[in-house]
Simulated assay, not measured.
Amino acid sequence: MTDLEAELRGAQRIGSKGLTTPTEIGIARAAALFERVDPAAAAQHLEPVLAADPESGAGWVLMARIRLVLDEVDKALDAANRAIDLVPEDARPLAIASRALTLLGRHEEAVTMAYRAVIVDPRNALWHDRVAWALLAADRQYADAEQAARTAVGLAPDEAHYYFTHGVTLDALGHADQARQAFMISLKLEPENPVAQHRLAKLNGEAVKEPEKKKRGWKLFGRRGEAANGPSRPEEYLP
């Protein structure tokens, strides 16, 4: 099948799902490129779509996610802020902005944005997790970070990452035994996680080498079933 034929078939599938406007089709194609782990091509495809329709909140959310994967943090923050203005009922751009602000070292703003995401969507564990990491990165209020991480575990008790975050916050508070237990639960759910393995070994006083850092991914700020790519838990790789 040629690239043109694949594109035409993709357009037919998009049309069958009720996505008929140029903006909707353009966003869907950019999301497909993003899912295929080609964020640069996704951004290139999405730019003219947003130029033609700058009022697309969905488009700006996707662009913010893409820019984070490309390590274009300033552009990611700008796209997230555009989305916040257009879709204030959506917690995702608030969380994306929080992540970008953390990476820029603007920790107070990052914490505020993370809490705003929780206010918009308090039943989503992702945003409580973002609060925890925003506070950890700010190097303060570890008790509040632990509470946020504990809330995330309660909302999604089958997700390994939230136990990992809880372990990090407990370790920051000096609760080594509880942190060890949280890391062990995380590894029971996801045995091959090298970062959790490293943190547990370090906590146990074992001689370990630093795990290889992965490129930041963006599944964390997607919703289940949405296009995403790369490592799903970028927060684990914060300094």
Rank of each mutant, 00 (worst) to 15 (best):
G105W: 06
L103E: 10
V69Y: 14
Q12T: 13
A30W: 00
A132V: 07
E47G: 13
A28C: 02
A52H: 08
L136T: 08
E89F: 10
R92V: 14
R9E: 14
L68N: 07
F221W: 12
A148P: 05
D85L: 14
S16C: 10
S56K: 00
R13P: 08
D158V: 09
W218M: 15
I96V: 08
M113P: 02
A148K: 02
D74I: 12
D129E: 14
L135D: 06
A42Q: 02
T2I: 05
R233I: 14
D129Y: 10
I25L: 05
F34S: 05
P194W: 00
T20W: 08
R123H: 15
T102K: 11
I119H: 09
T20M: 11
Q44R: 13
L68V: 11
P88Q: 09
L62Q: 03
A117K: 06
R123I: 15
R13E: 14
L238Q: 12
L68E: 12
M113L: 10
G205E: 03
N193Q: 10
R92W: 07
A31E: 01
D53T: 09
V168L: 15
G59T: 04
D85Y: 12
R150L: 13
I119L: 13
A31D: 03
E212F: 06
G26W: 02
K215S: 15
P194Q: 01
K202E: 15
P39D: 06
F164Y: 15
A138S: 01
E47N: 11
R130D: 14
R116D: 14
E226A: 07
R29L: 11
A30E: 03
H107Q: 04
H166P: 04
V69S: 07
R216N: 13
V111T: 12
R36N: 14
D85K: 14
A40M: 09
K214F: 11
A182Q: 05
L104A: 06
P39I: 02
A100S: 04
D121S: 05
T102C: 12
A83I: 04
Y237G: 05
A145T: 00
A40C: 04
L203E: 01
T169D: 09
A160R: 08
P93Y: 03
A143R: 14
G205N: 05
P48C: 09
T102D: 11
E7L: 13
R216P: 14
G217D: 01
K214S: 13
R233D: 15
V153T: 04
F34E: 10
P194L: 04
L155A: 00
L200R: 03
V73D: 02
G57L: 00
E24Y: 05
L46M: 01
A52L: 06
R65F: 05
R140H: 11
P239Q: 06
G205K: 04
A114I: 02
G18A: 00
V195R: 08
R65E: 05
Y142C: 07
W218I: 15
T21N: 09
V208D: 08
A91V: 00
L77Q: 11
G57M: 05
L86K: 06
A134R: 00
R67S: 09
K219A: 13
G10E: 05
Y162M: 07
E72V: 01
I84R: 05
E192S: 13
G26N: 02
F221S: 06
A125T: 07
L104N: 06
P194F: 00
I14S: 04
G18L: 03
A207K: 15
Q197W: 03
